[in-house]
Amino acid sequence: MEHTEESAAAPRRRRTGRTIGLIAVAAVLGLVGGTAVGYGIQAEREPTALPALNQPGLAYPKPLPKGQKAAPLPSSEDRKAKTDGDLRKLLLPRPAGTKKTEFSDLSDGWVPVSAYAREFRGPGPALNEQLSAGVRRIASTSWQTGKYRVTEIRLVQYRSNDTLGAQEHAEDQMAYMPDDDYARSEGEPIKGSANGHYYVFPVKRKAGYLDMYEARAYFHRGDIMVAIFIADTKKISAKDISSVAEQQLGRL
């Protein structure tokens, strides 16, 4: 008799509980037996010595031959020697075709910490904060391009202590840039810097006055925090501020 579609789809006969139990026992015996054989083989083999914990060949940096000393870094590669010297020499030189601002010669390139603090909205707290952070010295340069454009760069250096003065000061300044009174944006990253940003502010207009444009950049490198300002009565492009920031970064 031919099988119907219904009979072909009938379920298979189920295994009894005894059959399942036998299969389970056999599986367990196989696992235990295999493990026992494996241990037996290992026991008959000669022990393999472990590698030495102390491997001098992996030491880094490689020790110098006896009697030799490491040559000191050239000044061009020694950042500490560079930053411990005259900080003003690390400032970006005044570009050709520009002129000094009216305040350029008043401080000989140095800004007193008290004068720097007076430029903040809360001079007293700002001064206390800078002293607590271990501010060491501040170097500055500025120049004028055309009739109204002024560019200023400041290097704020901190002493080595348990605070990260340069990093924290840069981050504090960048933190309020998105506010309405400032750039109103998160800024754009400075090429070559892992932490810095530049900002182009919206134009400021007031009846009876020329339009005011502003751009800033902030970053830190080691123990030096860098602040760059450009102001003009004409539009300042992103390239204008980013170019100055990248050039100054390259000198640190």
Rank of each mutant, 00 (worst) to 15 (best):
K204A: 07
K82E: 07
E188T: 06
M177R: 04
A126D: 02
I41A: 13
P93K: 01
Y218F: 13
R118Q: 15
F201C: 04
A36C: 13
F120M: 01
S242R: 07
L155C: 00
A245W: 07
E214R: 15
V28R: 11
P93S: 01
P51W: 12
G122N: 15
K204C: 01
A59L: 10
G222Q: 10
Q130Y: 14
G40V: 01
A183V: 00
G134V: 07
T48Q: 14
K89Q: 08
S242L: 05
L131R: 13
A215C: 07
A10G: 05
K99P: 00
V200Q: 07
H220G: 01
K235W: 05
Y199T: 01
E2K: 09
E129H: 13
L92C: 01
G30K: 05
S140L: 10
S114V: 15
L31N: 04
E77C: 08
E6I: 05
E44W: 15
R149D: 04
T145I: 03
L58M: 12
Y60S: 09
K89Y: 06
G134K: 09
E188I: 06
L73F: 11
A96F: 01
I153G: 02
K191H: 15
A194M: 14
S75Q: 15
S185Q: 09
L249T: 00
D108W: 14
F229K: 03
S142V: 03
T101G: 03
